[in-house]
Amino acid sequence: MQDKNRTEIEAEVFRRLLQHLDERKDVQNIDLMNLAGFCRNCLAKWYVTAAANQGTELDLNQAREIVYGMPYPEWKRQYQKEASPEQVAAFNASGKGTGSSDA
């Protein structure tokens, strides 16, 4: 596979991942962290890093808006639920973080 073709395919896959996550707003970030070790916020941080690697300035809020499809505070207000004690315990036991509300 040629590099250009690979990049186009990867871009299409990433857009499909974002679409899928947008369609599954019921899946909380903490659920993603507990099951897969990453969440929407991780994707936003990876987006910022990738942009910087390409010489493009992008801040975390801009990246979050790309990943969430809206400003992050709005997404949190509309879709983020309080994590259950079981979710927090699983998150903390995994060593993935300190139980941050941004998970």
Rank of each mutant, 00 (worst) to 15 (best):
L60Q: 12
A63M: 03
L21D: 09
C39D: 08
G37C: 01
Y68V: 00
P71T: 00
D31I: 11
H20I: 09
Q78A: 09
L18R: 05
R15D: 14
E57H: 14
V88H: 08
M70N: 07
N92V: 12
R77I: 04
V48I: 02
G55L: 01
K76T: 12
R6Q: 12
D26F: 04
S84C: 04
Y79I: 02
A90S: 05
W75M: 02
F14M: 08
G37K: 00
K4D: 12
D102W: 02
G55S: 00
A83N: 04
A89N: 07
K76F: 15
N61A: 15
K81V: 07
T7P: 02
Q54V: 10
E23I: 11
H20C: 13
M1R: 14
T56G: 06
G99S: 02
R16K: 13
D3G: 14
A11F: 08
G97M: 01
M70R: 08
V67N: 03
R77K: 10
Q19D: 15
N34W: 01
R6W: 06
E86L: 05
R15W: 12
R77T: 05
L18T: 06
A51P: 00
D26I: 04
I30F: 00
R24W: 10
M70Q: 13
N41R: 10
G95I: 01
A52W: 05
A50W: 11
P73H: 07
A11Q: 08
G95E: 00
V27M: 06
S94Y: 02
G99D: 02
Q28T: 01
K4I: 14
N41A: 13
P73W: 06
D59Y: 03
K4V: 13
E12Y: 07
N92T: 06
T7E: 11
A89L: 10
R15K: 15
Q62D: 04
E82R: 08
Q2D: 13
S100P: 13
A51S: 05
C42K: 03
L60E: 14
Q19G: 09
S101L: 10
W75V: 00
H20A: 13
M1W: 09
C39V: 10
S100G: 08
P85Y: 09
Q87Y: 10
Q2N: 14
R6A: 15
Q19V: 07
G37A: 01
N34S: 01
G99L: 02
D3Y: 09
E82F: 15
V67E: 04
E8Q: 13
A83I: 05
Y68H: 03
V88I: 14
E10W: 15
V48E: 03
K45A: 15
G99F: 04
L21S: 09
S100E: 11
L21K: 05
Q78K: 12
D22Q: 05
E74D: 12
A83E: 05
L60W: 08
Q54H: 07
T49A: 14
E74H: 11
Q78F: 07
L17F: 12
D3Q: 10
W75E: 01
A11I: 12
A51H: 05
V13A: 10
A90L: 11
G37H: 00
G55V: 00
A103M: 09
A103F: 06
E86K: 05
A51G: 03
N29Q: 03
A52C: 13
Q80G: 02
A90R: 06
R64E: 07
A50T: 06
L60A: 14
Q19C: 11
A11P: 00
E65T: 09
L17Q: 13
V48L: 04
S84F: 04
S94H: 03
Y72E: 09
N61Y: 11
A103S: 07
F38Y: 12
